[in-house]
Nucleic acid binder design. Sequence first.
DNA 1: ATGAATGCAAAGACTTTGCACTACT
DNA 2: AGTAGTGCAAAGTCTTTGCATTCAT
Lengths: 140, 140
Amino acid sequence: MANTVENLVQALSDAGYRVTQPRRAVIDALSRARRSLDPEEICQRARKTHAEVGLATVYRTLDMLQELGLCSRVQIGGKGYALTCSESRLHYHLVCRKCHGIVEMEADDAADSLQRRLDSVGFKSQAHAIELVGVCDRCQ
Amino acid sequence: MANTVENLVQALSDAGYRVTQPRRAVIDALSRARRSLDPEEICQRARKTHAEVGLATVYRTLDMLQELGLCSRVQIGGKGYALTCSESRLHYHLVCRKCHGIVEMEADDAADSLQRRLDSVGFKSQAHAIELVGVCDRCQ
DNA sequence: ATGAATGCAAAGACTTTGCACTACT
DNA sequence: AGTAGTGCAAAGTCTTTGCATTCAT
């Protein structure tokens, strides 16, 4: 099941949050992104959909999405970047330290056994994705 | 092969960096920690070993260690936390979002197949560990 | 000896918060 | 209508940087 914009918006609504223009715009910007974006970038892109989007709202929306496990924030060189998952099942995000590009990697049996082991130690992972930061093919 | 304090110091030296008292103190503090620490905490603990350690040096040392893949920085609630690996092979770090405690999880076949897949997409992971942030057994 | 590394303090960057106003439900 | 959500700007944190001095090689 893919996390389309509509699915994300629906999840927001289901969680009892209001579906507002700025939130829609932020989600839209995140979904389109092929790389992880910092809050400033998200704000700029969101403004193309809905002119008035404040940086504070971007931060607030990101917190909300992260709370729901719909996006994650990675730290690259001290700075915070955010990305959404296009898949809702447990999988890997490979984040390039240079270009911030994202490669999503299927979970298959490796992650399944990972999930079983997480259960066995009683650890509740709040994310459906695992971030690996490194250098991608093209940037080496 | 475990990453003892001496191994970490050696790695520093091998990489051409000088082995100074402050750096030793930071490494020592990180190694003893059973949970991820923020820079301020690292600084305070390091001062027990070597009285004069500036926060700036902590940041500089963390950058250095991360560069060498000897420590990683996780983002929890917008704040940056650091942790070292006690193992040098690819494995998982389970970081509790509440107590910041760390559970290290063996890699075994799951991570081995992960490594193979990383190779196949040409992605160079700079970390030997994968961070998973969630809520641990005791904090639920 | 000599240049890398340090501490301090100042500068800079990132994130959160307060408040009057707007707009979902 | 009523309240959650918003933008703005100010406040608060976290991180980096400049520079004279110290210290490892």
